[in-house]
């Protein structure tokens, strides 16, 4: 019963954010950057549900308009790590020779390096911006995916039904396509949902540190960074964007894990 309710809530949250991301203009008409110097630091009210910032900009408008870049960066990062990491993991798990072993060692080594630091290192090379953040985070969480996929492949590969298929004379390619991949897909998709949550948080963290997209498309992380200096006067500027991050991550995690494991690593 409780499970159904929370899953329903998560679906509603995701639907709202999808609308915000696709047609922000419908929810918050007008330019999100419009300043109103007569109305700075207004606390939340009906006119400004999330209040206004130091330049009198409506925080709610800015949050709605920041949805797309906040979520897209995470999605892109997850997609990159899912595809690349999945491939690496599959190769690691399936190859019994030195290649699989060596690749697994490299992956283990990269795993030991915290994702956020890896992303920062990559950004130091490729520079900031949404696309680079997605790339950096995608590469940074590639090892985690590779390791998960490898583990799952090894687990499935050791199942007697694989021996049964080999013994029955089923081709190697058919075993991989018909037995291995379908049996690892579930766990990997569930993990992808969790990784999406982690990536959204990490992307906003990088924006917060100042590596995010340029101002007009400011995402939630940059909004929080912008409101940081006035936090003693106007808590709402930082509070609401952060709440949005948490809501979207909670919803996505809820939908992907269905009550199972939470995020695998603490997001920064």
């Amino acid at each position: 019963m409780i499970r159904r309710v929370t899953i329903g809530l998560a679906l509603v949250v995701v639907a709202v954010f999808v609308v915000w991301a696709i047609v922000p203009g419908m929810i918050a008409p007008g330019e999100p950057g419009t300043t109103d110097l007569l109305n700075t630091f207004a606390s939340p009210s009906w006119a400004h549900p999330f209040g206004t910032d130091d330049l009198g900009r409506d925080v709610f408008d800015r949050v709605v308009h920041g949805t797309r870049s906040s979520i897209l960066v995470g999605l892109g990062a997850t997609l990159i790590s899912l595809l690349l990491g999945g491939t690496v993991g599959l190769v690691c798990g399936l190859s019994r020779g030195w290649l699989g072993q060596a690749l697994a060692r490299v992956v283990d080594m990269l795993m030991s390096f915290p994702g956020l630091l890896m992303a920062l290192t990559i950004i130091s090379v490729v520079g900031s911006g949404s696309r680079n953040i997605a790339l950096a985070l995608g590469v940074a969480s590639l090892p985690a995916f590779a390791r998960l996929v490898r583990g799952e492949v090894l687990r499935v590969r050791d199942q007697p039904f694989i021996d049964a298929a080999v013994g029955a004379g089923v081709r190697r390619s058919a075993i991989v396509i018909r037995h291995v991949i379908p049996n690892v897909a579930g766990a990997i998709l569930a993990f992808a949902g969790i990784a999406l949550g982690i990536d959204i948080i990490a992307a906003s963290s990088l924006s917060f540190l100042g590596f995010g997209p340029a101002l007009p498309a400011a995402d939630w992380g940059s909004l929080i960074a912008g409101g940081r200096d006035s936090v003693s006067d106007a808590w709402w500027i930082t509070f609401f964007p952060g709440l949005m991050v948490a809501l979207v991550v909670l919803a996505v995690t809820r939908l992907s894990s269905r009550g199972g494991a939470g995020p695998l690593e603490p997001a920064a």
């Binding site: 007697p160 039904f161 049964a164 298929a165 013994g167 004379g169 037995h179 049996n183």
Partner: peptide, 22 residues
């Protein structure tokens, strides 16, 4: 080898894990 497997087939101990659950 695959062709030869046609003539020698296995049955394993635990029938639950020896059949693909999907």
């Amino acid at each position: 080898l695959r062709q030869a497997r046609r003539h020698v087939q296995p049955i394993f101990q635990d029938p639950l894990t020896a059949l693909d659950p999907r």
